[in-house]
Design a protein around this nucleic acid. Structure first.
Lengths: 260, 260
DNA sequence: CGGGGATTTGACACATATCAAGAGCGGTGG
DNA sequence: CCACCGCTCTTGATATGTGTCAAATCCCCG
């Protein structure tokens, strides 16, 4: 879990100008324009002066260490968070202490949209590695979208895609079998790493088998067995959290009729 | 499935002024203000002139017979639809012809938000009984939300709540057992009927066992057995699609630690 | 009144959960 | 720097919940 140097290298390139601030909040001269995640993030599609104005959105960033949360279920909703670097899980807590992982988030993705409807967050967002988020005060976003139709469109798209993503998870949970679920999960991760400029066939998992299992509706032992099966079939190689996809076509075949 | 007279009675009360239109599209003098679903629908929370202007959103309605679809997966996204009366399912189609039901919709709920992100609908919306929807052209909605911050807020809330609803389904599919799932499903329906002024303990299902199963990630036989079990335990009475909840507390208990 | 889809129920198969034990690895402190 | 400790992961044996297949019944619709 510490071999993330390469992963962070790109995201850190923007070199924010920091000024002291209380706690782990850092005031920055924000530069969406120079952030290499801008094509995945909210300003995507904005140009010229619109893009410049959109930078008003983010005036603080927050650094989080592994295990820290950006917000807890039950917290009042104030801001959205754009994930600048790192890796998060979103979880629902059950009364008996167990948790259901509802999402894994990586760079460029938006966290916190579950809070808009009720004003209270229904999930918790936990950093699975040291991470940095751009804080987007929702009031500010609302204000800016009035002047910037492009930003409004973009924000609606981000929410809509979250709905569609969840449809995909529902399909996975509702009709796929264990190995199909894991294959779908790995291919999804692969594709998302690839979109961010990392290898699509060689990456480190940030989460435990138990967290994968929670997300996929399986027990950790079942996840482990499926990993072993794929390795026996030479579709992937597994060394703890280090995954290498050896046969992407074969993995897709393992998804049965659900492939992509 | 034809005993829906009472159900429709309220929604029909608004008595639209119709003018002839091609196909099943009807131009109406729309009156969100007099629609009894307004507290559940998009104009919720708007007052005075804002509420009046919001009525510009809807200038057509569409009537659908049972089995007809408002939009198919793959259709270009143009409009959102507010369900005025009736009952819908939203489905994902698999390559092999099977379907996954991702939602059941009733009066006041918004359909079609899955299309915003990509410009293409990813689900199909099928009427499970004769229904009527208000057509909300998305371009018009975008335009109006610029002038009406309240409408914008409201729309964001509607999308956010859809995300949260799907979290709930993920929890259900990921960690509940068959009977817990059915109990959760029945209690959810009960609560939604209640919110619309109908009995919370006596209602007709609009969908088949197979559709319930698809939504809950179960086979129709398992759904049927769970119904029978609940009936044996005198938690509910089942006569085909007619459900009576006899012991809501017991049903909640059947949800285990997930109740509510 | 007849036909066909929807539902129920039973017997059995199978996938995944559960329980258990041991190995591997990483982090910590001496 | 090494050894220990704890957490994560793997693997096996077994239990169990749900799926599958099949047949009978029920209704709803025409």
């Amino acid at each position: 879990m510490t071999t993330t140097i390469e992963i962070h290298a790109r995201a850190e390139a923007a070199m924010p100008l920091r000024t002291p601030a209380p706690g782990n909040v850092t005031k920055v001269a924000t530069r969406c324009a120079s952030c290499n995640l801008r094509e995945l993030c909210l300003p995507c599609g904005l140009t010229g002066s619109d893009a410049t104005r959109a930078e008003e959105l983010v005036y603080t960033r927050r650094r989080l260490k592994r295990g820290e949360t950006v917000y807890h279920a039950g917290d009042p909703f104030i801001s959205l968070y754009a994930l600048r670097s790192g890796f998060f899980k979103a979880t629902l807590m059950l009364d008996d202490g167990r948790e259901q992982v509802t999402a894994f988030h990586m760079g460029g993705e938006m966290l916190g949209m579950d809070g808009i409807g009720t004003g209270i967050h229904s999930t918790s967002a936990v950093a699975l590695e040291d991470s940095e988020v751009c804080v987007i005060p929702y009031a500010k976003l609302q204000e800016l979208t009035r002047d910037l139709p492009g930003l409004q469109t973009q924000f609606h798209k981000v929410m809509s895609r979250e709905i569609v993503r969840e449809h995909g998870v529902m399909l996975l949970l509702g009709s796929m079998r264990a190995e199909e679920r894991l294959a779908a999960f790995l291919l999804n991760l692969s594709q998302r790493f690839n979109a961010r400029g990392y290898s699509k066939s060689d990456f480190n998992l940030r989460m435990t088998r138990e967290e994968i299992g929670s997300y996929l509706g399986l027990k950790l032992e079942t996840v482990s067995r499926a990993f072993s099966k794929f390795q026996d079939e030479e579709l992937i190689s597994v060394q703890q959290k280090h995954i290498r996809i050896l046969d992407a076509v074969g993995l897709k075949a393992a998804m049965g009729q659900y492939y992509n």
